[in-house]
């Protein structure tokens, strides 16, 4: 059996706390996959996952928000039932909703980067509101841009067909999720880990 002979390399205190939060947030995003609300005019059900992608970027910042979503995708890839409809497996990552899934880490990193202006985390109640709104809009555009572009390429659809299947039905719900995300961070109950 393979053993390592090096001395123990302990993980830094801030890193452990952020890592534990990133892993638990990834599990929470997976847990919300079970809470799916079907809507009549689109085949894809509504899930609260995007709300938590917003929160990952806002609360964990660009680096650990990104790590959290990568953990979510990796756990799903090896078979945790964390994707919409309680599915898992590598197949889902290249399947029809693959584009949305791959965009999550990028969107979380982008939101974190805009709001925290770098990797050092700031107090969210002190951030100017339009900055948060702009960051969430940018994140949403990344998610739906990548999601529909990939779906259009994969299923050989035209741009309008892909948008009407994969983006337009969700716009009202996305606005609700943005308002909810802003309400959550503005309530001041969540404090980012600061080194």
């Amino acid at each position: 059996m393979a053993t390592e002979q090096n001395s123990v390399d302990l993980v830094d205190d801030t890193v452990v706390r952020q890592f534990a939060r990133a892993a638990l947030l990834a599990a929470l995003i997976g847990a919300t996959a079970a809470v799916s609300i079907p809507i009549p005019f689109s085949p894809e059900p509504i899930t609260l996952q995007v709300l938590f992608v917003f929160l990952a970027g806002l609360v964990l910042g660009p680096v650990w928000g990104f790590v959290s979503l990568v953990l979510y995708l990796a756990a799903g890839a090896v078979g945790a039932p964390v994707f919409a409809g309680l599915n898992g497996g590598v197949g889902v990552l290249v399947g029809n909703s693959g584009g949305y899934l791959w965009s999550y880490p990028i969107a979380a990193a982008l939101i974190g980067f805009i709001v925290h202006r770098g990797t050092e985390l700031r107090d969210l109640t002190a951030v100017w509101l339009p900055v948060i709104v702009g960051a969430l809009l940018a994140g949403t555009i990344v998610i739906y841009g990548m999601g529909t572009a990939y779906m259009a390429w994969l299923l050989e659809l035209g741009a309008w067909e892909a948008l009407s299947l994969g983006a337009f039905p969700f716009i009202p719900v996305e606005i609700l999720k943005m308002i909810a995300a802003i309400a959550i961070v503005r309530s001041g109950g969540l404090r980012p880990v600061r080194s």
Binding site: A22, A27, A31
Partner: peptide, 12 residues
């Protein structure tokens, strides 16, 4: 991280 996600998924 993956192991933790699996462990905490049912809890959450």
């Amino acid at each position: 991280g993956i192991a933790l996600v699996f462990r905490f998924l049912p809890v959450l």
